[in-house]
């Protein structure tokens, strides 16, 4: 059953230099209980997609298209209705655990806040539930009292608190936006494992946003590759990794510092993708990646390439996709 369906989502933002296009026709579907990785460079629009789903776009941004969630178009809902979705049905884990928590409120209060707000629990009931949630994310009392303040915890421990907050109302969808980027390596694996466990346990769908291909490979069943506000490749994670049909996807792999860690054989040379992301104020009419693509030809320039299906479920928006196996 489809839980979340984006149809031709376009987001523009007003800047002093005129409107800039941040998302240019993003569409995808995510079924209940499934996991989806969204990967791309910083600025490719993956966080903007998450904020659009949350209804928390910056004030200057305009969204068009449809975001269907549990059968309702979130873009058509008023603010009150959105508030009943946020935190209740869709929850989010942010990149920076150091700043995502309010420094002057106890972690117990912050976990309990959503419970009291959405479920109308009393103080005692909310506190009891917060205690259970903190325990579930690996912060058991009495060592981690709910009376602690965020500054008394490490980065990984704070991210656990953020996850507990997100789980509080048992939402149907968890969006994790670069949840481990700010953490040290050991905490990274623990946090990803925790997210995988709790989403499986509660039957939550997971949208995992990252710039790290290895994280997608290890944690998601399906994935999207985004570039400059467009989806350039999508499919089952194993399928996409086996083929890496879009030149950008291959560039991303070549440019990732530690390849895919132990699970994929590494040993390739670290590369950079030459050129620059196009100016969001003046996007070229044709393929958005053509300016940096070694395979680009004249046919790429007049209009954007339509997405073609390579095998069922694996699509790529490219006229000249790679058809050999992905380099390991």
């Amino acid at each position: 059953m489809t839980l979340l369906s984006l149809q031709d989502l376009r987001v523009t933002i007003d800047t002093p230099d005129g409107p800039a296009t941040l998302l240019d026709g993003v569409s995808f579907e995510l079924a209940a209980g499934q996991s989806l990785g969204v990967v791309g460079e910083s600025g490719c629009g993956k966080s903007m997609t998450a904020l659009a789903v949350m209804g928390l776009l910056p004030a200057a941004a305009r969204a068009q298209g449809q975001i269907l969630f549990e059968g309702r178009d979130l873009l058509a809902l008023d603010e009150d209705a959105l508030c009943r979705v946020r935190g209740r049905r869709i929850a989010m884990v942010f990149q920076e655990p150091m700043t995502a928590l309010n420094p002057v409120k106890t972690i117990g209060d912050q976990v309990a806040e959503g419970l009291r707000w959405h479920l109308g629990l009393g103080r005692g009931a909310a506190e009891a539930r917060a205690l259970t949630l903190l325990q579930r994310v690996g912060l058991p009392a009495p060592r981690f009292s709910p009376q602690l303040y965020p500054h008394q915890l490490s980065g990984g421990q704070r991210q656990r608190v953020v996850i507990a907050m997100a789980l509080a109302c048992e939402p149907a969808l968890l969006i994790a936006d670069e949840p481990t980027t700010a953490l040290d390596v050991t905490s990274q694996a623990e946090i990803l494992d925790l997210i995988a466990e709790v989403t499986a346990e509660l039957g939550m769908a997971l949208m995992l946003i990252t710039h790290d291909l290895a994280v997608v490979w290890q944690n998601t069943a399906a994935m999207l590759v985004m570039y400059a506000g467009c989806v350039v490749e999508r499919g089952a994670t194993a399928e996409v990794f086996a083929r890496m049909a879009h030149p950008y996807t291959r560039g991303l792999l070549a440019a990732s510092p530690h390849g895919l860690d132990a699970d994929l054989p590494s040993g390739h040379r670290l590369a950079t993708i030459p050129g620059q992301v196009p100016d969001p104020h003046q996007r070229p009419p044709g393929c958005i990646f053509a300016g940096r693509c070694r395979r680009a030809a004249d046919a790429c320039l007049p209009r954007p390439p339509a997405e073609r299906t390579l095998v069922p479920g694996h699509g790529v928006a490219c006229l000249f996709p790679h058809d050999d196996e992905a380099p390991a």
Binding site: M54, L56, E79, D80, C83, R84, V85, R86, G87, R88, A91, M92, F94, E96, T99, A100, L101, N102, P103, K105, E113, G114, W117, H118, V162, M165, A168
Partner: peptide, 20 residues
């Protein structure tokens, strides 16, 4: 960021403003 977190929890603009 923590105000955005509060909004992501579902708090209304007004509640996030006053409480956080």
């Amino acid at each position: 960021d923590y105000v955005r977190t509060a909004r992501a929890k579902g708090l209304s603009r007004r509640a996030a403003l006053w409480r956080h």
